[in-house]
Simulated assay, not measured.
Amino acid sequence: MTDRAHPGVDAYIEGLPDWQQEICRKVRGIVWAADPEIEETIKRTVQPYFVLDGNVCALLSTKDHVNLFLYDPTVPDPHRLVNQGHGNATGRAIQIYQDDPIDREPLVELLRAIVANNRAGGWRKLGREAPTPVRENSHREP
């Protein structure tokens, strides 16, 4: 593929049925488009992960779909791409079935939001940091 490709991720994708290979290759390209610094790795022996200052997402094929796990439960999903794990404390997922369309730009937007949170310290840290309240000045100038 490219210099960004991890041989373990290549092997994982190549071992899938053709329709799942197609989905994984499309998703991989979308992940790469989200940020040029996202790297690929293998975790849990064979599972492809995409990381940048923490986990961004991961791929996992099942019998009848491909899961794209998103490792930030806090990013907005205005296009309603997430279809699994609503309310999950650590992440959500997009299940992609054969012949499902993949909405590229909204997915890029979602992944960029995860990367932005990772660069800011991660969603866990961001969730602990409450904004500093703005106090009105009680002293008024004459």
Rank of each mutant, 00 (worst) to 15 (best):
H65I: 11
Q84M: 13
D72S: 14
V46F: 13
Q84F: 14
T62Q: 15
L70T: 05
Q47W: 05
A34E: 01
A33E: 14
Q84H: 15
T62D: 07
I42V: 10
E22S: 14
T62V: 10
L68G: 03
R80I: 02
P78G: 13
P76V: 02
D72W: 07
L59Q: 09
R28P: 06
L70D: 07
E40D: 02
Q84W: 15
W32L: 10
Q21I: 00
L59G: 07
H65A: 09
V82S: 08
A34C: 04
Y49A: 04
P73A: 14
R28A: 09
R80G: 14
V31L: 14
G54T: 02
C24V: 07
T45I: 09
R44P: 00
C24K: 08
L70M: 13
H79R: 09
Y49L: 06
R80E: 15
T45F: 12
P48K: 03
A33W: 02
I23M: 07
V66Q: 08
L81V: 08
L70W: 05
V46G: 02
K43D: 01
T62S: 15
R80W: 03
N55A: 11
P78K: 13
Y49S: 02
K43E: 01
V31F: 09
T62Y: 15
K63Q: 14
K43H: 03
N83H: 11
E40I: 01
Q47G: 01
R28E: 09
W32S: 08
K26A: 14
L60D: 05
D72H: 06
G54V: 01
V27N: 04
A34H: 00
N83A: 12
V31P: 05
Y71K: 01
G54S: 05
D35Y: 03
